[in-house]
Simulated assay, not measured.
Amino acid sequence: MEKVRFGIIGVGNIGTVHARYLLAGQVEGASLAAVCDHNPDKHAVIRRLTGDGVPLFNNAQEMIDSGLIDAVIVATPHYDHPTLSMMAMRAGIHTLCEKPAGVYTAQVQEMNACARECDVQFGIMYNQRPNPLYQKVKDLIDSGELGEIRRSNWIITNWYRSQSYYNSGGWRATWKGEGGGVLLNQDPHQLDLWQWLVGMPVRLRAFCQFGKHRDIEVEDEVTAYAEYANGATGVFITTVAETPGTNRLEIVGSRGKVVVEEGQLRFWRLRESETEFNARWQNGFGEPECWEVSIPCAPECSDHQVITANFTAAILRGEPLIAPGCEGIRGLTLSNAMHLSTWTDDWVDLPFDEQRYYELLHQRIAESVEKPAVSRTLDASGSW
């Protein structure tokens, strides 16, 4: 294979973003070979985007069986991700799925098993992983520069979404249509990065507010506290109703502190570890000598095509995936656990009771109210 022929299932906000860079030839070794959207009312707009040279389907199975594509990008509402992804995998089609991979963890386990059985590449569109800022933070942690991780805090409140955003699709912000709110729609990137950088906690306690600031069923504000096996702690705070918002990640280790905020990385390094200093210091007041170190780092980048380019290289040359499907379950585990903690008003140990979560989720799905909405494709350019 010299070039990977991509199909896109779901040409809405983010599907349109993927179509544009593929049509522009911005991914070496890849082309847009077909698109699919089951809503015929959108086909005229899609055709204006793609032109007449790209076949347009209204049935995913027909596109998958057409012989026109080698790989697919699944960019539909969340509940359809597992079904459509596995449909493609079983046809031998390499599958790149938008985040989140599924609404609950059991779905993602099934997806991973299917990818192994079908021997296809399976990736998640975690386009924040290749961001040089977070790549550098991971390097500082993995190399031991920060020492043992003691605390992490992520305040991610710059996800401002107006009521008109939620009114742009009947599926949005409902238990039946989306399976969650800010944790499932906006925060999968940060939840993935959080566990990618500092690992998975052993238990957490969360407080989700449902429809606090918006006329929606699902969570629009969350505060969560996590505990780790080594005694470290973490706090995750998010909302869609705060402006101006904040995006600040702070990680503290025994040898220093790193902060990512406003597209900048700052690193404070202790000349000796806090553990060693504390063991030898006998003068009461005092603290280890600390240096703020300038860290070379490429400009911030979160383009979706970076993940697609990596996925293409994995198909063509066997390069390792930046965001393999087998890791898509971890961030989802955190969001599921946060829901479960709130619903049960209790701590949740990890791994958590997936069956209990499934039962409580489906109670909410059964009570979910259909909302009238006129489907609109919004401009998602520049979004995460």
Rank of each mutant, 00 (worst) to 15 (best):
V218Y: 02
N58L: 07
L193G: 06
Q264L: 09
F57M: 07
D345V: 10
G92R: 10
K176P: 00
C97Y: 03
G199S: 14
G67I: 13
L270G: 03
T243A: 12
S168A: 14
V198I: 15
W171M: 07
S31C: 12
Y79N: 10
T76E: 06
P320C: 06
Q128Y: 14
D215P: 05
G325Q: 04
K212C: 07
N310L: 05
A60K: 14
F57A: 05
S383G: 13
L146V: 05
K371M: 02
R47K: 15
G147A: 04
R255Q: 07
I322H: 08
G181F: 04
I14E: 09
G15Q: 04
T377H: 06
T105G: 05
S294A: 15
A229P: 13
E359C: 01
G179C: 13
L249Y: 08
S168I: 01
R255L: 02
A323V: 05
I14N: 07
I329C: 09
V182P: 02
R255I: 01
G147L: 06
Y126F: 07
V374A: 12
G123M: 09
N158R: 14
G234V: 03
T243I: 08
T76H: 11
I216L: 01
M111K: 08
D139T: 00
I156K: 10
D70M: 10
Q264A: 13
L360R: 14
V72M: 09
E250S: 13
Q135D: 07
H304V: 07
S31T: 15
S335M: 03
A366C: 08
M338Q: 12
E272Y: 00
T95R: 08
R214M: 13
N59R: 14
R129T: 08
G382P: 03
L56K: 02
L146N: 00
C301K: 03
L183M: 12
V306D: 14
G12L: 09
I8V: 14
N58R: 08
A33V: 07
I365M: 15
S143T: 12
C208V: 04
D187Y: 02
M111Y: 11
T342F: 11
C290S: 04
G253P: 07
A113L: 11
D215G: 00
A60V: 08
R90D: 15
I156C: 10
W281Y: 05
K257D: 01
R269E: 04
S66L: 11
A323F: 04
I329A: 13
N247D: 14
E300M: 13
Q363I: 01
I14Q: 11
H339P: 02
N185D: 14
G231D: 12
V240L: 04
G144I: 09
G331R: 06
A241H: 05
Y357P: 02
M111Q: 15
N112W: 05
